Computed example of a mutant assay.
Amino acid sequence: MNQAPMRHTFIVGLTGGIGSGKSAAADMFAQLGAAIVDADAVAHDLTGPGGAAMASIREAFGPALVTPAGALDRTAMRQLAFTDPSARARLEAILHPLIAAEGAARMSAAMAHGAPYVIHAVPLLAESGGARQHMSRILVVDCPEDLQVSRVIARNGLAAEEVRRIMAVQASRAQRLAIADDVIVNDGDLERLRRQVAVLHAKYLEAATKAVFSG
């Protein structure tokens, strides 16, 4: 992750565990005018049919992990990664440099088009130390683990055991909070979440303006 976004870009790294509500928070920041660059969306594009990562993925894992349409078979890869940690490491070695480069390009484009600041949503931000060096602030969306589990069950229909397996390979709640400059506590309703986003949006607008004129 060596490619840096354009100078003076004010970047808020947004992260949180599965089911924390980080996507809902990102949507609210977008409604207020922030540019959103979502690492998951970038990865989805890279591993879609004909995506820039697919040739390397096919070479590394063979055709069994590629759908007939030419995309990554995410279900098969998830099952392989849970049983073979080295497979996950190999996939990350392919994807992370591509995600970093494409994310930086999208952030630079957003600022060039007048975005006041960028929310860079990175689910595994706490796990990837190199990604943090270009962040102006780190925002963690936090909630109790039991609430994470119940939300994912309701949203995706997964069994509780599978949700907890996903959580087990992510950073812990404590590890995420340890890197946070700002925290949104998302254990209530959407209106409470919206109020917290609005407060931080005002703070980030002020900080971004200062960064531009002091750089």
Results as ranks from 00 to 15, higher is better:
residue 156 N to V: 02
residue 211 A to C: 10
residue 113 H to L: 03
residue 194 R to D: 12
residue 173 R to W: 09
residue 164 R to K: 15
residue 131 A to N: 09
residue 205 L to F: 06
residue 125 L to P: 08
residue 184 I to E: 03
residue 142 D to N: 05
residue 96 H to K: 00
residue 147 L to H: 01
residue 203 K to L: 08
residue 146 D to R: 12
residue 156 N to I: 03
residue 141 V to Y: 03
residue 145 E to F: 02
residue 207 A to P: 13
residue 132 R to D: 03
residue 196 Q to H: 08
residue 139 L to E: 04
residue 126 A to K: 02
residue 107 M to P: 01
residue 140 V to N: 01
residue 99 I to H: 05
residue 159 A to E: 11
residue 203 K to G: 03
residue 180 A to E: 07
residue 203 K to F: 11
residue 176 R to I: 07
residue 106 R to N: 04
residue 148 Q to D: 04
residue 212 V to P: 02
residue 153 I to R: 00
residue 105 A to N: 14
residue 160 A to V: 01
residue 185 V to W: 06
residue 137 R to E: 06
residue 149 V to F: 02
residue 206 E to A: 14
residue 109 A to Y: 02
residue 146 D to W: 01
residue 199 V to H: 13
residue 98 L to K: 05
residue 212 V to R: 15
residue 170 Q to F: 05
residue 199 V to E: 13
residue 98 L to F: 09
residue 189 D to L: 05
residue 128 S to Q: 14
residue 172 S to C: 13
residue 111 M to L: 05
residue 205 L to S: 15
residue 171 A to N: 13
residue 131 A to G: 12
residue 116 P to K: 09
residue 129 G to F: 07
residue 175 Q to I: 12
residue 149 V to K: 00
residue 143 C to D: 04
residue 158 L to S: 02
residue 204 Y to N: 09
residue 160 A to G: 11
residue 146 D to C: 00
residue 106 R to G: 07
residue 200 L to A: 04
residue 106 R to F: 10
residue 186 N to Q: 08
residue 122 V to M: 09
residue 194 R to L: 09
residue 115 A to C: 09
residue 131 A to S: 08
residue 213 F to P: 01
residue 188 G to Y: 09
residue 164 R to Y: 14
residue 107 M to W: 05
residue 117 Y to G: 06
residue 123 P to G: 14
residue 212 V to T: 07
residue 175 Q to N: 15
residue 146 D to F: 05
residue 137 R to A: 04
residue 207 A to Q: 14
residue 190 L to G: 14
residue 190 L to V: 14
residue 152 V to W: 04
residue 156 N to C: 04
residue 154 A to F: 06
